[in-house]
Design a protein around this nucleic acid. Structure first.
Length: 804
DNA sequence: AGCGATCTGATCGCA
DNA sequence: TCAGATCGCT
C-alpha cells in the first residue's frame, strides 16, 4: 500500500476520508508545513489526528518510521493506536506513538551512554521521589518544617520544567540558596543511584538532543511528521523538546523539513498548576510561522442549550484564540439548576434525579456522571448513593502499580536489576521484617555516605550483629538473582514473591487476602505484558532504530523514510526499545516490565461496576462524555475554588474548568449548589457560583427553589442567576439560608462588630458587614469584600477588626 | 516493632 | 471532618 499502487484518483476521494466535515477534511489533508488545529470539545479531534496519520501513510507521503505522535496520557496513546489500526491494516512498527515520557524514555534507553545514564536506569514515581527527598533531608539535616518534602519535590520539578539545572537557578535570598543546594544534592543522589524522576526523563532527553547535533539531526530527518495532541497542556520543556525535534532554530524561527501538527483547545487548558503553558500555542504560531490554522467548531456531542451555556460562559474569559461551538442537533432540554439548603440535601436531590433518569427516562447508569471540583465532595454523594442502593464508581483512587504490595514486589525486582537503587533498598530491606531496625539503617546510611557508595554495597562495612543481618539481606538478593537467571518473567516474579517472604507475610495476615490477589495479578500483568510487547520466544529481535546506531558518534545513514511498509509484521508498537543503539545491548523483559510499571501505573479500579454511575472530579472528566451530567457544589469558594480567586488567571482557569465540565454532557445537564455545606469540619455558607450567573437565561431552568418562578425574572441582564453581588435576589436568598442556621435578631455582636460597619480581615482585606446572625461564638457575619465578594464568617473564628 | 493517641492541614493530578 | 503523619509507650 505504498504510493505506487495507489489507485489513480484524487486523494480526498478515499473511503478513509468519508464522513469528515469540511474543516476536518481540510485538517486531515493539509499539505506539508506546520499547522495548528483548534479543536473544540466534541469536535472529533482524535478522529482528525488518526485519520491524518492514516492519510499520510495511505498516500505514501510518509512511512510509519517517519511519524511521531505525542500524547499526554497512555489512554490517549492507546486510543490513537487502536483507531489507527482499525483504519489501516498495516504494521505500524517503526512509528513512534506514545506519551512524552514514554518517548523520552525510549530515546534515553537507546542512547543511555550519551545521556550519561546506566543502561538499567530506573524511573522514580512521585512516591519514590518523595521518599528519596525525605532520605536526603535526613542525611543533610534539613529543617523539615521549613522545607517540606512535597514542596521540595514540586520545586525540583518546576526547575526542570523550565529547563534549569541547579547552576542555572537564580538564587538571591538564603532560602532560595538552600533550596538550590538541596536540588543539587538531590540530583547527585539520583545520579549515584541510577534513577530518574518524571521531569528528569524529559529534561535529560532534551539535553541529549541539544548537546548531540548528529543525533539530533538524525531524528530531525527521520521524523518528517510530528503530531501533538492536547497541545494546550504542554509545558515549557515539552515545547522546547518539540522544537529541537522539529528543526534547527535560526533567528527565532524553526528551519527544517518537518511538519508539526499541533492539536489543542486553549479553552480547555486546565493544568496550569502543573506547569502547562497555554502560551505555547501563540509561541508555536509565531516561532514556526505556522501557515495553516484550522478551527473545528462543529460539535457532535451536545445539545444546543448545553453548548450555548458553554459558549456564553467562556466568553467571560479574555485572551482567547476564539471559538464558538455549534451543533445541528437542536436545542434539546434546558440546563437545569437546583439550589439545595445543605450539601446533604443536594445529595438527596441528586439521588432522586438519578432514579428518575434511570427509571423513567431510560438513561443507563454508566451514562450518568457526577462531577465535582474537589475529591472531598465525593464522600456525601457516595454515602447517599450507597444508602439508595445505586451502584457507583469513583475515579481516581490508588492505581494498580501504586499499591503498597505491588511497590514492594517491584522494589525487589528493581534491586535485582540495579542494586544501587537505595529507594528500593530501603523500601524492602525490612519488609517483611528481618530485625533490621532504624538504628541499623542509620549506621548503614552513615557508612554509605562516608564511602560514597550505595546502601547495598555498604552492607559489608557495618560491623556486629546489625552488619550480619544486613549482609544476609544482601546475600538473599544475590541468591535470588542467580535463581531467576534465564527464567521467564512470570517465574522470576513468582520466585521473588516466595523467596522474599512477601507471599508468606501476606498469607499470615488476616487482611492480606486482597493483597495476595493483587500479587497474583502482578504475575498475570507481567505475562500479558511479555506477550504484548513481543518478548515471547517467537519474537523477532528488531532494533529500535537501525539507523540510529552510532548516530551519537559519527556515521549517519540516510533518512529511513524510504523504507517500505512491511505487511508481514504483527500489529504492535513498542514503547520500549529492544536494543540499545550504541552498544547493541538488549533490554531484558524484566527491565522492560519495570519501565512499563513506572510509566503506566495502570487502572485505578479493577472492579469497574458494569452499570454504575460515574463519580469524578472535573479534571478527571476531561476527554470523557456522558448522556447526563451533574455538576455539583457550584458555590463561590468551592467552584471557583477560593485558592484560585486571588488572581485573574486563576479565575479564568476555573472558568475553563467549568467549560470542560459543561461540555461533557450530551443530552442533560444539571447544575446544583447548596446554601451551606460541611467544609473542613465546619458548616460554611457560600453564595451561588458566579458561573451560574454567566449562563444565558433562555437556556436554563431553575428547579425547586422555593419562592421562585422557574425562569429567570431578570430583564436587564441576560444572566439566569444572581450570585447576590448586587441585587434583591440576594436578600431572599439569605433569608432562606437563615432557615438552616441559628437565627438571631441581633444586628450587633459582642465584639463590637455591627451591621454596616467596616471591618478588616487578614486575607480578604477591608469589607462591609451586611448582616449578622446568631449570638456568642455561633455568631456569623456576612461581609462584603470588594475583591472577594461576600463571605459568611464565623465571628468566633475569623479575626475581624473594626475599622470604622 | 508496632500500636494507639495526638496533631495538622486541607484544589485539581498526567507521566 | 478526617486522613495522614508523627509521637510515645509497651
Amino acid at each position: 500500500m505504498t504510493a505506487q499502487n495507489l489507485p489513480d484518483r484524487p486523494a480526498h476521494d478515499l473511503p478513509l476520508l468519508h464522513g469528515l466535515n469540511p474543516e476536518q477534511l481540510a485538517a486531515v489533508t493539509l499539505p506539508q508545513g506546520h499547522a495548528l488545529i483548534l479543536a473544540g470539545a466534541g469536535s472529533g479531534k482524535t478522529r482528525v489526528l488518526t485519520t491524518r496519520i492514516a492519510w499520510l501513510l495511505h498516500t505514501g507521503q510518509a512511512s510509519p518510521g517517519g511519524i511521531m505522535a505525542v500524547t499526554f496520557t497512555n489512554k490517549a496513546a492507546k486510543e490513537m493506536q487502536t483507531r489507527l489500526s482499525a483504519l489501516l491494516p498495516i504494521s505500524l512498527r517503526g512509528m513512534w506513538m506514545g506519551t512524552f515520557h514514554g518517548l523520552c524514555n525510549r530515546l534515553l534507553r537507546a542512547h543511555h551512554q550519551a545521556a550519561g545514564l546506566p543502561a538499567t536506569f530506573q524511573i522514580l514515581d512521585t512516591q519514590d521521589q518523595l521518599s528519596a527527598i525525605k532520605r536526603l533531608r535526613k542525611a543533610f539535616n534539613v529543617d523539615a518544617e521549613r522545607y517540606p518534602p512535597k514542596q521540595l519535590g514540586w520545586f525540583f520539578a518546576s526547575c526542570k520544567e523550565d529547563g534549569l539545572r541547579p547552576k542555572d537557578v537564580p538564587a538571591h535570598d538564603p532560602d532560595m540558596l538552600k533550596k538550590v543546594e538541596l536540588y543539587q544534592l538531590y540530583e547527585d543522589q539520583c545520579q549515584r543511584e541510577g534513577v530518574v524522576d518524571f521531569a528528569e526523563l524529559l529534561l535529560r532527553s532534551y539535553e541529549l538532543l541539544r548537546d548531540h547535533p548528529a543525533l539530533r539531526q538524525h531524528y530531525q530527518q527521520r521524523f518528517r511528521y510530528l503530531l501533538v495532541d492536547e497541545f494546550q497542556d504542554t509545558n515549557k520543556l515539552q515545547y522546547q523538546w518539540l522544537k529541537l525535534l522539529a528543526g534547527e532554530q535560526e533567528g527565532g524561527r524553526i528551519v527544517g523539513s518537518s511538519s508539526v501538527l499541533a492539536v489543542g483547545d486553549d479553552d480547555q487548558s486546565i493544568y496550569a498548576f502543573r506547569g502547562a503553558r497555554v502560551g505555547n500555542m501563540q509561541d508555536f504560531l509565531r516561532e514556526f510561522a505556522v501557515p495553516h490554522q484550522i478551527k473545528l467548531e462543529r460539535n457532535y456531542r451536545s445539545h444546543g442549550n448545553i453548548l450555548d451555556c458553554a459558549n456564553a460562559l467562556i466568553e467571560h474569559n479574555s485572551q482567547r484564540l476564539g471559538k464558538n461551538l455549534t451543533t445541528d442537533q437542536g436545542a434539546g432540554e434546558p440546563v437545569r439548576i437546583h439550589e439545595a439548603p445543605t450539601d446533604l440535601d443536594e445529595a438527596r436531590w441528586l439521588v432522586e434525579e438519578i432514579q428518575a433518569l434511570t427509571r423513567n427516562d431510560g438513561f443507563a447508569r454508566q451514562e450518568i456522571a457526577l462531577l465535582y471540583r474537589s475529591n472531598a465532595q465525593s464522600r456525601v454523594l457516595e454515602s447517599r448513593l450507597f444508602n439508595a442502593g445505586i451502584p457507583y464508581r469513583v475515579y481516581g483512587g490508588l492505581r494498580f502499580f501504586e499499591r503498597a504490595e505491588i511497590k514492594h514486589a517491584l522494589a525487589y525486582l528493581r534491586l535485582l536489576e540495579n542494586p544501587q537503587d537505595d529507594t528500593s533498598f530501603l523500601r524492602v530491606v525490612n519488609f517483611p521484617t528481618r530485625g533490621i531496625g532504624a538504628r541499623s539503617l542509620e549506621t548503614l546510611q552513615q557508612e554509605a555516605g562516608q564511602a560514597g557508595c550505595s546502601l547495598m554495597d555498604a552492607t559489608t562495612l557495618v560491623s556486629g550483629a546489625a552488619g550480619a543481618k544486613l549482609r544476609s539481606f544482601h546475600a538473599l538478593l544475590d541468591v535470588m538473582r542467580e535463581a531467576v537467571a534465564g527464567q521467564s518473567l512470570r517465574h522470576t516474579i513468582a520466585h521473588v514473591l516466595h523467596a522474599s517472604g512477601l507471599q508468606d507475610h501476606y498469607r499470615a495476615d488476616k487482611e492480606g487476602q486482597e493483597r495476595l490477589e493483587n500479587l497474583d495479578e502482578l504475575m498475570n500483568a507481567a505475562e500479558s505484558f511479555v506477550l504484548q510487547e513481543g518478548f515471547g520466544k517467537d519474537a523477532v529481535a528488531l532494533p529500535l532504530d537501525e539507523t540510529a546506531a552510532g548516530a551519537a558518534g559519527a556515521a549517519l545513514t540516510q533518512s529511513p523514510a524510504s523504507q517500505g511498509i512491511d505487511l508481514t509484521q504483527p500489529l504492535l508498537n513498542r514503547l520500549l526499545p529492544d536494543t540499545n543503539a550504541e552498544t547493541g545491548e538488549t533490554l531484558s523483559p524484566l527491565q522492560a516490565f519495570l519501565v512499563h510499571a513506572a510509566l503506566e501505573a495502570g487502572d485505578n479500579q479493577a472492579q469497574a461496576g458494569q452499570d454504575a454511575v460515574q463519580l469524578m472530579t472535573v479534571h478527571a472528566s476531561k476527554g470523557l462524555e456522558f448522556d447526563a451530567v451533574f455538576i455539583v457544589g457550584l458555590e463561590e469558594g468551592l467552584f471557583p475554588h477560593e485558592n484560585a480567586l486571588s488572581d485573574k488567571g486563576g479565575l479564568e482557569e476555573e472558568r475553563r474548568l467549568m467549560y470542560v465540565a459543561i461540555t461533557r454532557a450530551r443530552q442533560r445537564l444539571y447544575l446544583s449548589h447548596a446554601q451551606s455545606r460541611m467544609l473542613h469540619g465546619r458548616t460554611s455558607f457560600n453564595l451561588p457560583s458566579r458561573f451560574l450567573d454567566e449562563l444565558p437565561a433562555p437556556c436554563v431552568k431553575i428547579l425547586g427553589a422555593r419562592g421562585f418562578a422557574s425562569f429567570s425574572p431578570k430583564k436587564e441582564a441576560a444572566s439566569a442567576y444572581s450570585t447576590g453581588f448586587s441585587d434583591t435576589f440576594n436578600l431572599e436568598n439569605r433569608m432562606k439560608s437563615a432557615e438552616a442556621a441559628p437565627v438571631s435578631n441581633k444586628s450587633q455582636h459582642a465584639s463590637g462588630i455591627a451591621k454596616g460597619c467596616k471591618v478588616f480581615h487578614a486575607k480578604f482585606g477591608e469589607g462591609r458587614v451586611l448582616s449578622i446572625e446568631g449570638t456568642g461564638d455561633d455568631a456569623r457575619a456576612q461581609v462584603d469584600f470588594p475583591r472577594h465578594g461576600s463571605k459568611w464568617l464565623a465571628l468566633g473564628i475569623a479575626k475581624l477588626t473594626v475599622v470604622e
